[in-house]
Simulated scan of single mutants.
Amino acid sequence: MCQIMMRIEKFIENKKQFLDLLLLADEQEDMIDKYLSGGDLFALFEGDLKSVCVVVPISRDTCELKNIATCEKYQGKGYGRALINFISDYYKSDYKTMLVGTGETPGILSFYEGCGFKKSHRVKNFFTDNYDHPMFDGDIQLVDMIYLKKDL
């Protein structure tokens, strides 16, 4: 029996090839454009593409996970968690803290908390001020950005 190995690659160029997947986590392309060129994009493959994320530097000792998305048919199988574990290890020699911002969605907040993040702060009206249409996750309208942080 042949076993397919999981691999994670960092992409420096042609990051827009992953736009369809990035749009699952951030549904407005011009918002993705604001961080994609200055960020590191990582893609997780196990046979085919499973998950991607983008990490950007914020300060000398802090980076931010700006986007993480897993193909819908592979969600809930540990690929996002594996990618977060990889980038946490990857950046621990360069940064002290990793931030991630998300909407106030219980399932997503508990996912990040399960990956070692703790609630940090809130940016009021982030989604209503920065997106050209109302943002929803299921039936929950996203208004404030909830930031979580993780010590690396």
Rank of each mutant, 00 (worst) to 15 (best):
M1W: 07
C2P: 15
Q3I: 13
R7F: 10
I8K: 02
K10S: 07
F11M: 11
F11K: 06
F11C: 10
K15M: 10
Q17P: 11
Q17I: 14
F18K: 10
F18Q: 02
L21A: 07
L24A: 08
A25C: 15
A25F: 12
A25Q: 13
Q28R: 07
E29N: 04
I32K: 02
K34Y: 09
Y35G: 08
S37C: 15
D40I: 04
L41H: 00
L41Y: 01
F42H: 00
L49F: 01
L49T: 03
K50F: 02
V54S: 03
V54L: 10
V55D: 00
V56Q: 01
P57H: 04
P57E: 13
I58W: 00
S59M: 09
S59K: 05
R60A: 14
D61M: 04
C63F: 02
C63A: 15
L65T: 00
A69F: 00
A69V: 03
T70C: 06
C71S: 11
C71M: 11
C71Q: 09
E72I: 03
K73T: 06
K73W: 06
G76W: 04
G76Y: 05
K77V: 05
G78H: 03
Y79G: 00
G80E: 01
A82D: 05
A82F: 02
L83N: 00
N85L: 09
D89T: 05
D89A: 09
Y90P: 04
Y90L: 11
Y91S: 08
K92W: 04
S93Y: 05
S93D: 13
D94C: 07
Y95V: 10
K96G: 14
K96E: 14
M98R: 00
M98E: 02
G101Q: 08
T102H: 06
E104S: 10
T105H: 07
P106W: 03
P106N: 04
G107W: 03
G107D: 08
I108L: 15
I108V: 05
I108H: 04
L109E: 04
S110L: 13
S110F: 12
S110N: 09
F111D: 01
E113D: 06
C115M: 11
G116M: 12
G116C: 13
F117I: 09
F117K: 00
K118V: 13
S120E: 09
H121D: 13
K124A: 15
K124Y: 06
F127H: 02
T128K: 03
T128H: 03
D129I: 05
D129P: 14
N130D: 05
D132E: 13
H133Q: 07
M135N: 04
F136C: 13
F136E: 14
F136P: 15
D137M: 11
G138R: 03
G138S: 05
D139Q: 08
D139A: 03
I140E: 12
Q141Y: 08
Q141C: 10
L142W: 05
D144V: 03
M145G: 04
M145V: 01
L152R: 01
